[in-house]
Design a binder for these strands. Sequence first.
RNA 1: GGCCCCGUAGCUCAGUGGAUAGAGCAACAGCCUUCUAAGCUGUGGGUCGCACGUUCGAGUCGUGCCGGGGUCACCA
Length: 552
Amino acid sequence: MLFSLVKTLKKSPEVLGKELGEHLIKNYPDFFSGYNVIKGFLNLKIADGALTELLQKSYLNENFGKKSSSHEKIMVEYSSPNTNKPLHLGHLRNNFLGWSVAEILKANGNEVIKTSIVNDRGIHICKSMIAWQMFANGATPESAHEKGDHFVGDYYVKFNDEYKQELTDLINSGKTKEEAEKEAPIMKKTQQMLLDWENGKPEVRALWAKMNGWVYDGFDKTYDRIGSDFDHTFYESNTYLLGKDFVKEGLDKNILFKKDDGSVWIDLSDKNLDEKLVLRGDGTSVYITQDIGLAIQKFEDYHLDKSIYVIGDEQLHHMKVLKEILRKLGMPFADKIFHLSYGMVELTTGKMKSREGTVVDADDLVDEMVTTAAMHTKELGKVKDFSEEELNELYETLALGAMKFYLLRVDPKKRMVFNPDESIDFHGFTGPFVQYTYARIQSILRKVNQASDVQSHTSEITDLLPLERQLIIALEKYSTIISDAAEEMNPSVIANYVFNLARLYNSFYSEHSVANAENEEKKNLRLCISVMTANIIKSAMKLLGIKVPDKM
RNA sequence: GGCCCCGUAGCUCAGUGGAUAGAGCAACAGCCUUCUAAGCUGUGGGUCGCACGUUCGAGUCGUGCCGGGGUCACCA
């Protein structure tokens, strides 16, 4: 691109391009073998020898693409479930995104700590506890033969049904909506339970511990299956107290103020954010109270350069307020907090609403995908020699590959539509397409069976075919792609890259034979390209949390 | 209403101031005697929401408008 130089040098793009091109070829004949100038663009052709040499160097580098120097200590908080209902599709996007971003940051040379904050206390937790007391007759997940998180979630739904019923009854007896909301007996009981919980009443604490235990059993199974893991887990039941301490401190310093009813507020009107409540009139915590506590604890426990929160974009305002409060409280790390916001997952039929039963349950979805993967695999009948165990492992690999790729291939910041038909598609821009490319390469290697002595002689090649050139150039980009993805905290950069690489390889595969290449040099070159393509596919897919099968 | 995000092919999405705006799906036409056809090749399909501006050059930057969403809770 020559326009930027045209002005200062006062030469036409054509003349300038020609001069530059001649100069580069004359002085660097090992790197450039040709050039042309079209419409103000200087195109240089990289010499075959330079490309094959690059290929050889990269091929011998086991950690190709990854950076080794550790420059920053970064915490990635993701998942962050509530212990009153099972995980749904939105949580899956969060989990896949958080996990992947953490791995990408690691690959780019950072020290990363994966964490989750479990929202294990609060009014919503009390709701399922109250409903269980009222309706369960002592039932347990074991007695109901249900996964613990689903079991507790059912009582959360029961609470809402009952609450709605009480509201209509009260409104029918002449109360206004506001009065009904205040007076509904089940809500009053729940508020009392929250107070009892904060005061440490033993029966309430025992029930709370029991029911949360059920939920954790369920979550562990789901996490294990989808491959989410954490270096450290925070519990809101610990951090909310810390938040309260800082509210006290803020009052002493006159940063916060108390209203007549005893509630505590901060004035953020100078930042265009209005006033914000940080402690209720009855002294119990609100959402942001515990967030203040947790943010402080994170920086005290670990000495972080950056703290990333993977949270939906409906909380952009909340996170802005949190940062501002921390700044006003004089916390030096307020500016090291980064909200990695992602868009809501919508269904083709509209939004997911838990109260209307239109949520897509995470466990159900995985089951469905596994069934679909099994169906396709059986139809194709390519893995008849697999044992039952190997088959099941393959189905999980394909199902989760499809799901993760589907949710990660789009820009996280954007809202996305979950189309069930598309998500179970195994063709085109999908995880299984990339997995298939990997399996094909493994098949070649099994056939050729000499992967170990591939290294030799590739740099003698001087007649690269267009697809060979394109592949080598694409392979060499991997390192840059990781940096880009890390900088943007965007796994879709990886997904797009690895898909295009696989597509390119498939074109190459159908055009040229590896095992029956024209001569030994070509065969070696193509094996080298194939092995490296497979390595990069495996590595890139791992950054997305996706496994690749040797056969499918 | 204030603030924030989005608007690109029938659908789902890439496109980081540069060339003739690209993929996948869907539709249509081909390719399995040769390393896995979950693949490959080709065809059709676009006033990049609208208008003005900045620039040698705008899908990309700025302003205004139109359309969609989010948020502004003593919910989390």
